[in-house]
Design a protein around this nucleic acid. Sequence first.
DNA 1: TAGGCCATCTGGTCCT
DNA 2: AGGACCAGATGGCCTA
Length: 240
Amino acid sequence: MAEFSSQVRSAESSPSHFAKATTPMSPTELPSKAPTIKKTKRYSRPRVRCRSPTVIQRLKKTRRVKANDRERNRMHSLNHALEKLRVVLPASSFPEESTKLTKIETLRFAYNYIWVLTETLKMNGKMQEYEAAGLPNPLPTHHNLASGHFTDAEVKNESHLVDYSSWIASPDNTTASSVSGFESNSDESFMNLDGSFGCADQLGAFPMDMNQPFFQPSNLFCDENNVPSFQPYISAPFPM
DNA sequence: TAGGCCATCTGGTCCT
DNA sequence: AGGACCAGATGGCCTA
C-alpha cells in the first residue's frame, strides 16, 4: 500500500495537488530507533496540556489539512485501482472507438464480464459431460441452427453466443471466426463498449448490454425431447 | 442550460 | 491521538 502511494504520487499525470501530498519518509529517513530509556513517572495526574484557543484552532486546521491530504491520496489509490480494472476489460481494447468507462460502468462491466466468463466455463464443462456420455452436442451448431428450432432472432443471438464462448475459450482468441463463419480475426473480435460482443464490421448485438437483461448460455441446452430450448434473456446478473 | 461525472473538502464514526 | 473509511456538500467541466 505504501508502495502504491508513492507510485500515485509520482505519477506523471498527477495534478498539482499531488505536490501538496505529504511524502512519507523512506526507511533510510526514518529516525534510528533510540535506545529505550525507562522514565520515572513524574506526575500523579494525567497531563492535560493547557492550550490557548488560537493554538487549538491551529491544531485543528493542521489536522484537517492532513486529513484532507490522506483522503485525497486514498481516493487517488481507489481511482488507480479502477484504472487497472478498466484496462483489463475488453472494452479497453478499442479505446479509439470508445469513451472511458465511468466508475460505475467499470464496476458493472467487470461484474458482468466475470459472470459471462464463469458461465462460459460452466458451459464448456457441460459440453464435456455430453461428449463423455456420448450424447450429441446440445449447443447450437450450424446444423441445428438450420433445423428450424430457432427464430431468426434466436439464430442471430445463438451464433453470437457460439462465437463469444469460443472466443473466450480459445487461448489465442482466434476461433470466433471459424465457428460461425465470421471473416474476422482476433483483432476484430471484441466486446463493445455497450457490452455487445462481436466483430468490428458486423453484429447486431450479443445481448450483453450492461443495463439490459442477459443472455444465459446454460439455457441453450436441449430439453428432454432433444429440442433445443432457448431462453434468450434472464435477469441481469448485476442488479441495476 | 440541465444533468452527469468527477475531485475535493468536510465532519462523523470506528479502530488501533 | 491519529488514521482509515464513509457519505454528504460543493463547485468545475463536459455534453446533449
